[in-house]
């Protein structure tokens, strides 16, 4: 009796451990493969990132970025060399053609996911990098094409970086670091670097966002003071180096003579000038579907008794918008 009992127990344990696909051992193996693949992909991204900024990766820089011990980094490099993804030349690591193709694939996945998380899932900007990092692995080209098409073939991610195309072309980043921008000349923020995360959090906490028009008021070795016309922002120069700016585009010039829709008084007629660049994806499509296109006449007609939302007459229909939405539509009173 006792023997039977024990043999059943042992059998059950063996099954739990060794069952193909669902056994603990199989699960561990799957996890291990996925983990190794993720490590390879992260390493490829690091190399690509270095090559684009004109420097070269080294075993030390790789270990530092991926948080690996020296021995582990060396082992990873050896594995990747046998896979034909990278080559060591002295202390420098270089991507092979195959390695670069794969690296661009991962970068494309990452940036497309970031676009999705920011526009469609409306996740806070500070969180999208981590979430996109979790989702960027183990995706096929076909899956990425589907995501790309669903998002309307975006060219840039929410931080302003270009998204590589399927063919693997990636335009050079444009713009000047904020620290090198000439004071008193208006500039538009075109890129916010999301790594390291601490610096990115500081940029977000200061209130800066992509597409904002700013001007440098004061520059000292300790800090930079910026203004967008209403608020002042203070940044440490090390943080400011992660903000890239470019000259103002045309739409910004339009916006300067306009006011947000939310500030119109009751029944005051105005013409829509432009939709704010911060509005992308789902929200922007919704606005356009409802006919909130540039050049349209709009005026507030009905007020909720708590002030929010307010209904606006546009093209003969009445459309209610919440305050934070109406603040993203720029109009010019007529």
């Amino acid at each position: 009796m006792n023997l039977l009992y024990w043999s059943i127990l042992v059998l059950a344990l063996a099954l739990i451990l060794f069952l193909p696909r669902v056994g603990l051992l199989a699960l561990y193996k799957n996890w291990r493969t996925a983990y190794e693949r993720e490590q390879v992909e992260d390493a490829l991204k690091h190399l690509l990132d270095r090559e684009q900024s004109g420097r070269h990766a080294s075993p030390e820089s790789l270990g530092g970025t991926l948080d690996l011990s020296r021995a582990k980094a060396t082992r990873l490099i050896e594995t990747m060399e046998t896979q034909g993804l990278i080559e060591s030349r002295g202390a420098e690591l270089h991507l092979t053609a195959e390695g670069e193709r794969w690296a661009l694939h991962v970068v494309r996945a990452h940036r497309l996911w970031e676009r999705y998380l920011a526009d469609e899932a409306r996740m806070p900007l500070g969180q999208i990098h981590g979430e996109a990092h979790r989702r960027e692995h183990n995706l096929t080209d076909a899956q990425l094409d589907a995501l790309d098409a669903a998002l309307g073939h975006p060219t840039r991610d929410p931080h302003g970086d270009f998204i590589p195309t399927r063919e693997g072309s990636l335009p050079k980043a444009e713009g000047t670091p904020l620290t090198a921008w000439q004071a008193d000349r208006p500039a538009r923020i075109v890129h916010l670097e999301d790594e390291p995360a601490i610096a990115f959090e500081q940029i977000l906490a200061a209130g800066l966002r992509l597409g904002q028009t700013i001007r440098i008021l004061e520059r000292t070795p300790q800090r930079l003071i910026l203004s967008d016309g209403e608020n002042e922002y203070r940044l440490a120069p090390t943080v400011a180096a992660n903000v890239t700016v470019a000259p103002l585009p045309e739409s910004e010039l339009l916006k300067r003579e306009a006011m947000p829709l939310v500030e119109l008084s009751h029944a005051q007629k105005a013409e829509i000038v432009t939709l704010d660049e911060a509005v992308q994806g789902f929200t922007r499509r919704r606005f356009l579907d409802l006919g909130l296109t540039p050049g349209t006449i709009i005026y507030p007609e009905l007020q909720n008794f708590f002030g929010d939302p307010r209904a606006y007459r546009v093209r003969g229909t009445l459309i209610a918008l919440r305050k934070d939405q109406a603040a993203q539509i720029w109009v010019k009173p007529v």
Binding site: A121, T283, L302
Partner: peptide, 14 residues
């Protein structure tokens, strides 16, 4: 279901 509020647009038909 965390995230920022999405577009609130509501048509008030005649």
């Amino acid at each position: 279901l965390k995230g920022e509020a999405s577009a609130f647009t509501l048509e008030l038909p005649p």
